[in-house]
Nucleic acid binder design. Structure first.
Lengths: 302, 302
DNA sequence: TTTCTTTGTGAGACAAATTCATAATAATCA
DNA sequence: TGATTATTATGAATTTGTCTCACAAAGAAA
């Protein structure tokens, strides 16, 4: 049996219009075409879909089953069409995010909350496990937005600046290094450094300070959660380097001190990487705008 | 947008097979055809269903929505096909029954119970309100079986004999007519006759006795339920004429007497009327067989 | 690179759906 | 009941769309 949507639409139209001729009119085909179509369908199925004994064509039991399927299924297709229209008009879409910087969760979550309210039909998600290969994944359309602090010249990928931040040194209040006005690479040599469990190439402490100075901390302890890092630092189990927006977050109200790295401090810039084709999408533009304005508010809130 | 089932099947196949070429193989078309088809679909929709950047074709967000629809909807079509096959093989079908004789409920119900167990996929129903125009309704395929005691020569309609029954007179034990060995037309002239609320042409008392004798009972009282008729008769509110299978039914164990109508009694025969095309259907034949064997058992059970 | 695999494209062949004109059939009405 | 009207069916021609074939193009892999 070779059933097609056309047939379901016809069945439904004939039933609704109460006749073949009127239905043909609704479907914008000739009455003859409809008649041929139904006949072909009945030949395929091997049984009558309509009762011919009566003149305004009436559904047979089998035809009724088919009508019920049509009424169940056709609206779903209309819904899909609606969805597609929404995507086309820019009201809907997918926005899967990969974040290279582990701590970005802290400012991204509130931003996404705002975003969701504004764009309920956009499918927002943060894809874990893509931190390393984030940009290729972006090109392969596995994700649609990458938060990164290392812009590259890649064809088809735009890097839009979000905001600047400062990776700052953090230690317990009574820590010996708390006496210094700023922290240098050498200061880490005999310390226990607490970091996120990611590669050194993706940790500001190393890329911006230690790697160049060829300094290796005495111990490195890897911890997943920001809150736990803060806890360990406050209880003097080690020191860490975290973005300013993290240490100023009121939620982590522990007993610790922060110091700039190097005399003038280090400034880093976060970027939103998007496919060129997507950069101008209304919802994408909106999220980037939120990503530029909201996190600084967080930082000021100290 | 002009979506067809073919497209859903293709989308699903490409996803399942993990590639256009392999999918084309599954679908028994060339890889080229599939490529054309998808392209056409994307042109229609105005957006990409697949990510071309990667080589084994991968679904885009929009394509994924379509896949989900396919996986939701295609099984339903398979189910319909199954249903049709069942109808074709005679395992399934519709069996809507119209009964001209009001009292037939009494033996039909237990028969239908047996039938349902044997043919779970047959849609059994008793259509009310069709008692009068039952045979035309049968021809119009509004019902599939008519229980009737008046066979007619109708084109395309078969009358299969079921069983014989006897309309018997029934009155309260102390009723004056209880003294007679049998009841004649004249006996009704000063009686209150209790009947079902249907036309005289469909009541055995009239068609078999009173109409020919031009006798009219003193009063006619119409009552819907058999049980209520029995109750009224037992409490001497009137007399009635009912088929023997009713008065012998153990459920109506009231205080009444029964007498034959006319000296030798009247014998009537019930028929199952079916469309000629349906008569040989396995489930139809089975129901008719049940209708011939089961009710007599009921009668014997006295 | 080169090679292999996978997808895209154009022209022609083919199949299927539609239309037009008209026949057949049921329903309605006088 | 016959005439009339409304509705569905049919056949042939036409249009439309889908598929195949042969080959080009483009990623992926070696």
């Amino acid at each position: 049996m070779y059933l097609e949507l056309r047939h379901l639409r016809s069945i439904r139209a004939i039933h609704d219009a109460g006749g073949l001729a009127k239905a043909a009119d609704v479907l914008n085909i000739t009455q003859s075409a409809l008649s041929h179509q139904i006949k072909g369908l009945e030949d395929q199925a091997g049984l009558d879909l309509f009762v011919r004994r009566t003149k305004p064509l009436k559904l047979s039991p089998a035809g009724l089953k088919m009508l019920k399927l049509a009424e169940r299924v056709l609206p779903e297709f209309d819904a899909l069409e609606q969805d597609f229209r929404a995507i086309l008009s820019g009201k809907a879409g997918r926005l899967h995010i990969a974040i290279e910087c582990h701590a970005c969760f802290d400012w991204l979550f509130p931003v996404l909350e705002l975003f969701r309210r504004a764009w309920p039909d956009v499918d927002v998600d943060i894809r874990p496990g893509l931190a390393f290969e984030a940009l290729p994944a972006l090109q392969r359309e596995e994700v649609d937005l990458v938060i990164s602090s290392d812009p590259e010249k890649l064809p088809g990928v735009d890097f839009t600046p979000l905001f600047d931040y400062e990776p700052v040194f953090i230690a317990a209040s009574g820590h010996p290094l708390a006496d210094k006005a700023f922290i240098e690479a050498e200061d880490f040599r005999d310390q226990t450094l607490i970091t996120y469990p990611v590669d050194k190439t993706r940790l500001d402490v190393f890329t911006q300070l230690l790697t160049a100075a060829k300094v290796e901390p005495a111990t490195i302890r890897q911890v997943e959660l920001t809150a736990v890092i803060m806890l360990l630092v406050a209880s003097n189990r080690g020191v860490s380097v975290l973005p300013d927006w993290v240490v100023r977050d009121s939620r982590y109200n522990h007993d610790y001190v922060t110091r700039p790295l190097t005399k003038g401090g280090i400034t880093r810039r976060l970027f939103a990487a998007t496919r060129t084709e997507d950069t101008a999408l209304p919802y994408m533009a909106h999220l980037i705008r939120l990503g530029r304005t909201e996190p600084p508010k967080l930082q000021r809130r100290s």
